[in-house]
Structure formats: C-alpha cells, structure tokens
C-alpha cells in the first residue's frame, strides 16, 4: 500500500513527474490552481508503488509519499 499527496497550490504544471512515474499513473488535471497552472493528479492510485520517483523529480517539492 502506497499513497502520494500532491500539493496543488505548489504545483507549476511542469509535467516532469508524469515522465518520471514508471506506472504512468500521473496526468494533468483539467482544473487550474490559484497560480493558473494545471496541477498534476494521480489516476489508478491502487497501482502506486510508493517508489517516490515523482516526488524526487518535482522541482517544487509538491509531492509527499506515504507507505
């Protein structure tokens, strides 16, 4: 069991976490955050392994990982 939490307001929509996720379960949300960016969001959370590659790659330290 693993879980990530994305701080949508810190996210700048750079998409680097999408490219880093080996499970391809991160996508961009259609909503905007207060800064005007589309934040990243997770789909199929049950597939998340907690590898933290997304969090490691996020330049804005917007992702927390729980295991």
């Amino acid at each position: 069991m693993a879980k990530i939490v994305i701080d949508e307001e810190r996210c700048k929509g750079c998409e680097l976490c999408l490219a880093a996720c080996p499970k391809h379960i991160l996508v961009m949300s259609e909503n905007f955050n207060k800064k005007g960016y589309h934040p990243a969001k997770q789909i199929n959370p049950e597939e998340c392994t907690g590898c933290a590659f997304c969090a490691m790659t996020c330049p804005d330290v917007a992702i927390e990982v729980f295991k």
């Binding site: 680097l16 330049p59 330290v61 295991k67």
Partner: peptide, 21 residues
C-alpha cells in the same frame, strides 16, 4: 501509513520563484 518522502526541514515553506520545471 508512514511519510517516506516530504519537505526537508532545511527548506522554508516559501514557494520557489523558479520557472516551471
């Protein structure tokens, strides 16, 4: 569940002013 990755204490809460990515 335990937090295995989070914001280090040696960073403040201030959002970075850098460009996306």
């Amino acid at each position: 569940m335990k937090k295995v990755f989070g914001r280090p204490e040696s960073l403040t809460e201030v959002p970075f002013t850098y460009c996306p990515g």
